[in-house]
């Protein structure tokens, strides 16, 4: 299955939808992976035989700007595919990293609604302690 390489804006739209559908499900996940885009290595075993050269090449790579690949999927496996597998990706150009992550933070914050809200537990604790205090006073 080829993964869809989308523009940044399309990626955010799809990601928002993916978050919304996942939160409605009984059990759902969203996997987001980011890595540097490197040309496909056809013989990984060959390169493993020369570890010293590899590390040096890696260090040189760290200095040269290149695009970062971001993948998103719902992780639906072939064996247990009740839901359709969703898989898409986008490329972040080096000069657009900051703008991308500002938008990314917005989408994630609005999408991850099932996470714990701020101070919910603390408020409950306060209420509980107040209730016990008042009971103690009345008794």
């Amino acid at each position: 299955m080829h993964q869809q390489l989308l523009s940044n804006e399309e990626f955010f739209q799809k990601l928002g939808l993916l978050f919304a559908t996942t939160t409605k499900q009984e059990l759902g996940s969203v996997f987001l992976t980011q890595k540097r885009l490197t040309p496909y290595d056809q013989n990984p075993e060959k390169s493993d035989t020369k570890p010293q050269e590899d590390t040096l090449a890696d260090l040189a790579l760290a200095e040269t700007p290149g695009p970062v690949l971001v993948r998103a999927t719902n992780g639906a496996s072939k064996q247990n595919r009740d839901t359709k597998k969703i898989k898409f990706s986008t490329l972040i150009e080096p000069d657009a990293v900051d703008a991308f992550y500002v938008r990314y933070a917005e989408v994630c914050k609005s999408g991850m609604t099932a996470l714990k809200k701020k101070n919910r537990r603390r408020k409950n604790k306060k209420k509980a302690s107040k209730a016990t205090k008042t009971e103690g006073a009345s008794a």
Binding site: T22, E26, L27
Partner: peptide, 18 residues
Amino acid sequence: IQARPKTTRITTTYSTTS
């Protein structure tokens, strides 16, 4: 990332349970 910029990846997993 500094040591291995070519192969290192970061995976963010958001999973929900009803």
